[in-house]
Amino acid sequence: MKLIKLELTKDNFMKYIWGAIISTVCAIAVVALIGCIQDEGDTVFTSAYEILEMGDIFIRAIYIVFSGVLIANIIVGEFTNDTIKNLFIYPISRKKIMASKLVLVFMFTFIMYVVSAYVFYLSMAVLNAAAHMVPEAISAGMMIARIPTVLSGGLLTAGISLIALFFGMKKKSISVTIVSSVVIMTILSNSIDGTMSSNLFSVTFISVGLCLLGIAIGVSSFLNINKVDIN
């Protein structure tokens, strides 16, 4: 716990929070704009459910990359700019140091994901009331009903985004980490058959499988850390 606190003092986390706020606002704006398109009276979204679903896709995409940036700076960055040498000569087990970093990335991504999702839902409820993107209102009940979806979405996103760690550590490169997280995001978010809700992420066994893979990568990264030579 104390190690996580020290990690927080090392990097300026406000910049990540600002990044998250800006991208969430962008997601809100884009979805709202799409929602306002009207073609001979037809709107793009046919139900409130679709708007919220669209929001999930955006937020998920944002946080896979967001987490990629965190991994790049907090974990891979320590190796590329050699500060890991400082850390590993402290009387602290390497495993604990790595674990605290992973927990930090995972928790931060998860919490920000959930917060963002609900900020998005609330904004959409307000915007919809004003602009009537869909005939029905986005009610509090709908939002509450989505709690399990959002929580599981957050967990899956935080897990899947750890896959980028594998590529980043392999190449010991910040840009590889971020690029690989963008690639993962693109693959997962693309529509399979042209409808909005059918992307790879929505196939449960793929997302759960990838999440487990991500967590396995995270765990293996600190299981082997004691044997690694730091040059």
């Binding site: 040498k85 590993f88 000569i89 044997k227 030579d229 730091i230 040059n231």
Partner: peptide, 9 residues
């Protein structure tokens, strides 16, 4: 020196 600090095994 790195071996003494256990950075290198």
């Amino acid at each position: 020196m790195k071996m003494i600090l256990n950075l290198v095994k």
